[in-house]
Nucleic acid binder design. Structure first.
Lengths: 221, 221
DNA sequence: GTCTATAGCAGGATAGAC
DNA sequence: GTCTATCCTGCTATAGAC
């Protein structure tokens, strides 16, 4: 073995940190899952904290870039003409899986935990990934909006979309009980459909409201 | 001291578990914050796990009932005639503070963590509190809706509202950076206003839509 | 009910052989 | 690069005095 081991440690760590959180995971657990010796974490990364950070720099960041690529590619390809389509593509990027479904889940779980109780990792991720992505998203969306839309409206609407996406992942154990149906593919399809429709109307309504003479009437009426 | 100590332990535990999660908190930390001896946790609760459970049974459940009371009282008082008003009251119950703002924050943080990685506590909380509350909410909302609204639409719309509420609390450290303004009272007002408006249009649109084409999977055009 | 003292052990980290 | 062996801190938990 050489550097494959390092990769195996990172993958095991990502999964365990995502599922249980930093403190609930032991290095013994990680190396056992990665089928290697405990001390290799220290050889490759120096400490548990540094391994955790590296999960974000190596795994999380690159997955995020993949997702953003996929999103902007889909935009390029479909050349949406209404806000509705943009929101649909955004939601689908995060909930339909071109990417492996489980990896996408870990990805969202990890960031959810960082938001809840930020560490150095969030600092890195926010400046390197999230902030630039939001800037691009704002630029993308702006032309679709009536000029009266304020930056606040855009950012908060995006916030609402991501809130729903993250909450689906976070509450995936309870959701089936609330909906009284299993969390299968069909249910997931329903959830995607719901977020898209709900957010589209929400965003359109919001922006129409703070402008009387809207020309974005496509979504409603 | 007598039973006041027990209460102090519960309060300290609630705050720390909410902020850091079960594994990151030590009993030493809890008892130090509660200004009492470490062994009293074992005297009163038996173990760390049992203390955690008791936080939900004693603190979380009663706070939830308070909130639900406050919500249904406000409904009684204002006698809303449109869906918009109901949603506004729901959002305001969870984000404006009649209740101490910090306690409300702990309340939401605690349940967010339980959703993420459920324990025995969620089982209790779901059956005793959440499920009955959702049932009452559905009954309340149903008359305001167009008869074509399905149970799924209602549950998912409520889900979207709570998603946004919880996400505001969870990402409160990052939100100011995204909005480029401090997380002060004025910003909080803006957030409440946003969730209310966004959700109101989202929910109305959603229900109008499926009254139009009678099944949701058909999508939009 | 509250305290002291301590058992018992898990988990992060390091030294050093191969 | 990978492994064994071990250190040591800090944790949950208990026994027992007051």
């Amino acid at each position: 073995m050489e550097d494959i081991t390092k990769e195996r440690i990172l993958s095991a760590a990502e999964e365990l940190f995502a599922e249980k959180g930093y403190d609930a995971v032991t290095i013994r657990e990680i190396t056992s899952k990665a089928r290697c010796n405990l001390s290799l974490v220290y050889y490759y990364f120096g400490s548990k904290k540094k391994l955790y950070l590296e999960v974000f720099k190596e795994k999380w960041a690159s997955r995020a870039r993949e997702l953003h690529e996929a999103f902007f590619d889909a935009i390029e390809e479909t050349k949406p003409t209404t806000l509705d389509e943009v929101i649909r593509i955004l939601t689908a990027t995060y909930l339909e899986r071109k990417m492996n479904a489980q990896n996408l889940q870990f990805h969202l779980q990890l960031i959810a935990r960082e938001l809840q109780k930020p560490t150095e990792a969030l600092d890195f991720v926010f400046h390197e990934i999230i902030k630039p992505f939001f800037a691009r998203l704002e630029d993308l969306i702006h032309p679709f909006l009536n000029p009266s839309a304020r930056k606040d409206n855009i950012v908060l609407s995006l916030f609402s979309v991501f809130a729903q996406i993250v909450h689906i992942i976070n509450s995936r154990h309870v959701l089936p009980k609330l909906l009284e149906r299993p969390f299968d593919a069909k249910t997931k399809e329903l959830l995607i459909q719901h977020i898209t429709t709900f957010s589209m109307y929400g965003m359109n309504g919001l922006i129409m409201q703070n402008s009387r003479d809207s020309f974005i009437t496509e979504g409603l009426k």
